[in-house]
Write a protein that binds this DNA or RNA. Sequence first.
DNA 1: AACGGTCACAACCGCAAGGGA
DNA 2: CTCCCTTGCGGTTGTGACCGT
Length: 255
Amino acid sequence: MGRSPCCEKAHTNKGAWTKEEDDRLIAYIRAHGEGCWRSLPKAAGLLRCGKSCRLRWINYLRPDLKRGNFTEEEDELIIKLHSLLGNKWSLIAGRLPGRTDNEIKNYWNTHIRRKLLSRGIDPATHRPLNEPAQEAAAKTTTTTISFSHVKEEKDKISCTTTVVCKEGKNPIQERCPDLNLELKISLPYQSQQPEPMKTGARGLCFACRLGLQNSKDCSCNLIPSIGSSSSSSNSGYDFLAMKSGVLDYRSLEMK
DNA sequence: AACGGTCACAACCGCAAGGGA
DNA sequence: CTCCCTTGCGGTTGTGACCGT
């Protein structure tokens, strides 16, 4: 079936965007909204391909983007989500309001990878670097997390884990109500949301915002007051007790 | 000041998924 | 059911900034 080129390459600009191009794109999207990226460049008077416009808007021009350094909490959250989801940058970005998949991907490759390596952790497997691969494989139980729609709540996705033990023949399948990534379709992120990632910002602890309401990690009731330094602050939150090594998702599959 | 190496990040590319005709 | 178009994703590249020599 042959793919058509995404754009007429001979008549499109490439490389860094100019201020004028940015202004045109912003003005057009403000007037007409997002969508129909293929026809947008022509309509907006831009000599760019639709793909390029989309990228520029999503990664740089969107008004709800949170620019600036990542916080220690965001770091820890990215690490934990990456250990669960792998290189699913868009899913990880969905958990970090104001951050884009591209930004997180770049940040991972430039900062977090090094950070984990300096801690002696393999960034790909989230296991200690000195653990021999074969030994690790022998110990391994493979956990597959599959997401399926819940009939009653169509916007929510339930989670089933299948644990396959090396020595065991039969995989154990169980629902894990505590692991709720709360992936849902929602309206675009609103910029007036309160400062994210701060415990208690919306009256919810870090665990609750990850969908871990009522889990043992929920510290809503332990937080003395909003604004004070919280238990989940700089040292990072022990999401699913992964820091302590209680849970270890070696491989994950999105189905 | 000049140069080379490294880092950070914006942007590009190729592919796959999803959906409409 | 197939074809084709659009969109979105993840990996990779290009380039400017920064730093040490």
